[in-house]
Every structure is written in structure tokens, then in C-alpha cells.
């Protein structure tokens, strides 16, 4: 059957390796009936050759390799390299692929939202849980919660307070709702006092939540 290629995730095609995979079933199964359904679907699809156990194991490895670390690298580089930042803002995915030697391929549009002293960006998907998985991995549970999704569009400042972030009333809070084919990465403000930091030291300041907009990068208290 033919469908247009329309996915909210990317597919890593250059992941050709051979190694031992964990056995598919492990602990932490849910208590309810659903675990039987999950096993039934997995077995039937494997038997029919639709999706094999090996493919599932490999896909899990691929997904595990996607963490906020990549997003942090992008942000840190944008902080130290103005020309990279310019390219990043103009053509995010192309620039990231080129600079980091990746082949992230998706029909979705990645938009980088730059925080400034005048604008603080936050990201949500009120309708489900769309998230820049190709850069940051799987979203946190709170991002997918109805509490976050319902509240951040109507009371972003209250939500920020709850997350312990403080944004001035003089700064515009700009909430981007990922309703369709766009995925967002927040480029947080570089903290003061980091002029002598190396790129690696800067990366350590960029947490997942700073790239969603519920946190601002902080220097660790010594």
C-alpha cells in the first residue's frame, strides 16, 4: 500500500550494526491486561513478517541514542559561533546535519526559537505530544500531561513559576503550540559570566528543559 511519507519522526538509515540485543521481554511490565495485548501484537506481527523482533530491538537502540545531548551541542555551538547561529536560525535541520555529520531526514519543519532579553520562548503541543524527537529524544512525561498542555497556553507565567524559572514582566512570553508539521527547539539565553567557558562547559549548562522553555540555563552554585 502506498502512503505519502508523513511522519513526525525521522528514520536513521545509516545504522547498520550487529550486536547483542537485550531479550525483548524484561521486567517493568504493566499490571493490566494490556501487556498481553502488547505481546500478542508483537508476536503476530513478527510471525507475519510485518515487524520483526530484531527490528524492534534495533529501533529501541536508535531511539535510546537520541538524547538532549545533541540539542545541547547545537545550543552551545550557537552561543560561541555567530555564523553557525545565523545558519542555524535560517536553515536549522540542514545546518545541524552538515555541522554534526548527521543524516536526520524528516518532512517536518524544524524551527529554532531564539530567546533574547525581550522574548522568552516556550513550546507545547496542546493537541497531543509533538516534540523535536530527532534532536531531544523522547519528551518528558510532564510535557505529555494534560496539566501542562492545558495550562501553559493560558497561564505560561504560572507554569514557569512552578518550574522555578523567573522571567521579567518586561519580557514577552511567547508560547509556540506545535499543532501541525512544525517542531520547535528553544535556543536559550547564554548565562552571564560564561565568557571563558569552553563549548563543552557550555553544553553542560543546556538542560532538556531549557530547550523546551520551562527552564533557563543556570550556573551551578559552587
Amino acid at each position: 500500500m502506498s502512503h505519502p511519507k508523513h511522519h513526525d519522526h525521522d528514520h536513521d538509515h545509516d545504522h547498520d550494526h550487529d550486536h547483542d540485543h537485550k531479550p525483548i521481554e524484561s521486567q517493568q511490565e504493566p499490571a493490566g491486561e494490556e501487556r498481553f495485548l502488547e505481546q500478542a501484537l508483537r508476536e503476530l506481527l513478527d510471525e507475519k513478517g510485518v515487524v520483526t523482533a530484531a527490528q524492534i530491538a534495533q529501533q529501541i537502540d536508535i531511539q535510546d541514542s537520541r538524547t538532549p545531548a545533541l540539542g545541547a551541542k547545537v545550543v552551545a555551538k550557537a552561543w560561541v559561533n555567530p555564523s553557525f547561529k545565523q545558519d542555524l536560525l535560517a536553515a536549522p535541520l540542514e545546518t545541524i546535519n552538515k555541522t554534526f555529520g548527521l543524516t536526520i531526514n524528516t518532512p517536518l519543519e524544524l524551527v529554532v526559537l531564539e530567546n533574547t532579553p525581550d522574548v522568552h520562548n516556550m513550546v507545547v503541543c496542546t493537541l497531543c505530544s509533538c516534540y523535536p524527537r530527532m534532536l531531544l529524544g523522547i519528551p518528558p512525561a510532564w510535557y505529555k500531561s494534560t496539566d501542562y498542555r492545558s495550562r501553559v497556553v493560558i497561564e505560561p507565567r504560572a507554569v514557569l513559576k512552578e518550574f522555578g524559572a523567573h522571567i521579567s514582566d518586561e519580557t514577552e512570553i511567547r508560547v509556540s503550540d506545535s499543532t501541525a508539521d512544525v517542531r520547535y527547539l528553544v535556543l536559550p539565553l547564554r548565562p552571564q559570566g560564561t565568557d571563558m567557558f569552553t563549548e563543552a562547559q557550555l553544553e553542560a549548562l543546556v538542560t532538556r528543559d531549557t530547550m523546551i522553555g520551562t527552564a533557563v540555563p543556570k550556573l551551578m552554585e559552587s
Partner: peptide, 25 residues
Amino acid sequence: RVRFQQSDVWEDYDGSSRDTVIADI
């Protein structure tokens, strides 16, 4: 991508008059 003033979206918006929300429509 369409930008809305929060004060235009919510009747009693309790934030800054600068605040906005953007959605893909």
C-alpha cells in the same frame, strides 16, 4: 505560523500584555 496576542485569546489573561501564542494553522 500565526501569532496571537494572549490578551486577544483569553478573556482574563493574567500575564504581560506583551505575551503571545503562536500556532501552526
